Amino acid sequence: MALDGNPARVRLDARLTLAGVVREFLWQNWCGDPGKFVLGGILGRLHAETALSPPGCDDAASPSTLAALAGWGQPQPFLGAAPVRCGPLPPRSEAPGTGPMFGSDPFWFGPYAGYDETRRAIRIRADAPHTRNGWQIKTLWLVSQHANATVNVRVGDLAQDAQMSVRLSGRYLLQRSFVLDPAHPGAFHDPATADFPSYVYFSRAGCYFVEASWPSGMTRVILGVGR
């Protein structure tokens, strides 16, 4: 069974003291041969090894992963496998000055995560931060300036037993419905669009939707989310 993220690396920029410097890594979901394993570390010209026991098998359909923890010492629960084909093929198109994103003119969004076309799912990396609100993924929302209208957005999960929420840049509250007003963008990168940076949170692996509507139309995107 493959081990995604091996070898894992972290940049160490610290003054070494007698108290030591701690950096932590997380190995999850080993469903392969429970043979002998060795943990090796390299720091400059220094090299050390020690025997290592593999983690348990949480989901045989998901890869085993190794990654530096997003927050040192932060608990990182296991995220299940991304479901396969939660819905129809999600619309994707070239957004001005950005590249392929979900949606089409005048509304797009793009999570900073890998997209698995076979599963029609977003694949969250093992080192993605996990918070009390769920796994955190940086996401950019775009509205075309020529639309000259606000876009109403609603997010959620299809099974209604998980949570998806959004924190737009500059706002404290988590929201499951919000308005994107191109007259008041959160950022700029291209004169043709209004940008709205955000963080999106998923409570677990599952099937999620993004609905957007504006005076002349609407769209609904369904995506799987998981490892």
Rank of each mutant, 00 (worst) to 15 (best):
R171Q: 14
A159S: 15
P91H: 05
F188V: 07
A113S: 14
G103L: 10
R171G: 06
D157T: 13
R92M: 14
G134Q: 04
P88Y: 04
D181W: 01
T98Q: 12
D105T: 09
D161A: 12
L89S: 13
P185F: 05
R123W: 10
A192M: 07
Q74L: 11
L168Q: 01
A162M: 12
V179W: 01
V179Y: 05
R92F: 00
T139G: 02
Y115E: 04
P90N: 09
D105V: 10
S104W: 10
V143S: 02
K138W: 12
G87H: 08
S203L: 08
M101G: 14
L158H: 08
Y115V: 11
G97E: 06
T139Q: 08
L168I: 03
L140M: 15
A147N: 12
Q145N: 15
H184R: 15
P83A: 11
A149D: 07
T131L: 03
A149T: 02
G114T: 11
P129Q: 08
L158S: 12
N133Y: 15
D181G: 03
I137G: 07
R123D: 09
T131P: 09
F209K: 01
F188Y: 12
A192E: 13
D181R: 00
L79F: 08
W72T: 14
R123A: 15
A113G: 08
D116V: 01
P111I: 09
Q163M: 13
A81C: 04
T98L: 15
V166F: 01
P106S: 06
V200D: 06
Q74A: 14
W72K: 15
F188E: 13
Q145P: 01
H146V: 11
A162D: 12
A81F: 05
Y115C: 05
R119K: 13
H130K: 06
L79Q: 13
G97K: 09
T139M: 06
T98A: 11
Q160P: 00
G110N: 10
H189M: 10
S177V: 00
I122A: 11
Q145H: 10
G134P: 06
W141I: 02
D127A: 11
R123Q: 14
P75S: 06
A194S: 13
F109M: 01
R125P: 00
G170P: 03
A205K: 07
A183D: 09
Y201L: 06
V166E: 07
P90D: 03
Y112P: 00
Y199T: 09
D105C: 11
P106E: 04
V210E: 12
M101I: 00
R120D: 08
V166A: 05
G134V: 05
A147R: 12
Q145D: 03
A159N: 12
P185M: 10
E117T: 15
I137D: 07
E211A: 10
L180F: 01
R176M: 07
F196E: 00
V151L: 07
S104A: 15
Y201Q: 04
D181E: 01
S93C: 06
D105S: 14
W135R: 11
F196Y: 00
I137T: 12
T98K: 12
P96W: 05
T118F: 13
W72S: 14
G114F: 04
S177G: 09
G73R: 04
